[in-house]
């Protein structure tokens, strides 16, 4: 493993200053479960690791029905699924945090890191997209906000400019009669990277018979996690039915541009987008019905 310097930043400005000064040779260390492996395997050259875990803002974890969820960029997965109100209101995000790596990974890995690592197969990004999450980014020129769906630009690439860091993820409180669901296909039952991932969020009408709105997002079928816009909008106003769900699944399949690699073939992935989109939608709907 290459040599590098380690800085434990205590404040956001301190971290931003180091990132700004060192540019691409500096990386933020949060959970480290991707970064340390990538540097060890020489897939990434890093001269400075900026540990942000001592910064209060990146550890924030609050939820109320007014402001929704405020999730600090470095909050590890287990804190998310150990918080009851998050499980109740954002179950799709919780689904993802429970399957990222094993228990030991979830002790360190964080949703912010999953975003910044920008893997096309990142499990937490489809739920963030369907839950309308916003990324709060701080840089030398101040703060900006951006929808989670726009954060990743290519495999391993994000919108972050020199000196910028992700500080917080904000997720609005879902309307009543809403729920969300995320699942992925993997050949084992744990410890795998998604061959395909699918997240869905739905809002039903008061009678729980009609879909008021739906959002669907996919992982591992394009260079970045995808918001399946057409599949989502075609469900608005529809009765809950196999037909509607199948149409959405077909629309999701239409935007998938998967590759073949050691984790799965393009044909398998395209096929699975249909299967998983159906299962994600049904899972989210069932959660509303069960509530």
């Amino acid at each position: 493993m290459q040599a590098f310097e380690y800085v434990a930043a205590q404040t956001v400005p301190e971290a931003v200053a180091v990132l700004d000064e060192k540019g691409q040779h500096a990386r933020i260390l949060a959970g480290g479960t991707d970064l340390i492996v990538q540097v060890r395997e020489a897939k990434l050259a890093v001269d400075w690791m900026v540990d942000i875990k001592a910064i209060p803002e990146v550890n924030i974890l609050t939820h109320d029905s007014q402001n929704g969820l405020r999730l600090g960029a470095a909050v590890p997965c287990y804190q998310i699924y150990d918080t009851e109100s998050i499980c109740e209101n954002f179950p799709g995000l919780v689904d993802a945090t429970k399957i990222i790596g094993g228990t030991a990974i979830q002790g360190r890995a964080c949703v912010g890191g999953n975003l910044c690592n920008a893997s096309p197969a990142a499990d937490s990004i489809p739920p963030l997209i369907v839950l309308n999450a916003t990324c709060v980014i701080v840089g030398p020129d101040g703060e900006r906000e951006l929808p989670a769906a726009e954060f990743c630009t290519a495999p391993g690439q994000t919108v972050l400019e020199r000196g910028e860091m992700l500080v917080e993820i904000k997720i609005p409180q879902p309307p009543s009669n809403s729920s969300s669901y995320y699942l992925r296909f993997i050949p084992r039952n744990e410890m795998d990277i998604a061959v395909v991932g699918a997240g869905a969020a739905v809002t039903l009408d008061a009678a729980k018979q009609k879909i008021v709105s739906a959002r669907i997002a996919l992982a591992a079928v394009a260079p970045t996690p995808l918001f399946a816009e057409e599949a989502s909008t075609l469900l608005a106003g529809r009765e809950i039915s196999e037909e509607a769900i199948n149409e959405a699944a077909a629309a999701a399949q239409a935007i998938a541009r998967p590759i073949s690699d050691m984790r799965g073939t393009a044909e398998q992935r395209t096929h699975l987008v249909g299967v998983l989109t159906r299962r994600a939608l049904k899972g989210a709907i069932q959660r509303v019905l069960d509530a």
């Binding site: 094993g102 050949p187 084992r188 039952n189 744990e190 410890m191 795998d192 990277i193 050691m262 984790r263």
Partner: peptide
């Protein structure tokens, strides 16, 4: 890697 060679875990 153990990630992609996919030996059974106890959950399988």
């Amino acid at each position: 890697s153990f990630l992609d060679y996919r030996m059974p875990t106890c959950l399988d």
